[in-house]
């Protein structure tokens, strides 16, 4: 499944979608960035509540397929612009990380 398809099927809000054809595979949940860099795998969906600029850098470096911001977390425009520039897909959900993952787990 692509990030585009995931967003549509589960009605996530699309924050950025510069590379919507990336394939989603597996998931990592976490807010400590070094843990994400040490444990997340390329192609993973990364669910987090962090909202600073470093999220974009880490998502790009780790090659996650997309970031899902849980709990209705929002991003400043500067960060959104950077994500588009770096080719980082970001979705948003009003649900908790657990509820978000429970919905999409069968796709991963």
């Amino acid at each position: 499944m692509t990030v585009n398809q995931l967003a549509t099927k589960y009605a996530f809000s699309v924050v950025t979608m510069p590379e919507g054809e990336k394939i989603v595979s597996g998931c990592y949940v976490g807010d400590l960035l070094s843990w994400v860099m040490g444990r997340a795998k390329a192609g993973n969906v990364w669910v987090t509540i962090m909202s600073n600029l470093n999220v974009v850098a880490v998502a790009s470096l780790v090659d996650v397929s997309c970031v899902i911001l849980a709990e209705g977390v929002t991003l400043d425009k500067e960060i959104v612009d950077m994500a588009v520039e770096k080719g980082v897909n970001i979705l948003s959900s009003s649900k908790t990380a657990f509820e978000t993952l429970k919905d999409i787990a069968s796709e991963l």
């Binding site: 960035l33 843990w35 860099m37 962090m50 600073n52």
Partner: peptide
């Protein structure tokens, strides 16, 4: 608070 300082940097 920015998500760093977990003590994983050098080991990563």
């Amino acid at each position: 608070s920015l998500g760093f300082g977990a003590g994983m940097g050098l080991s990563n």
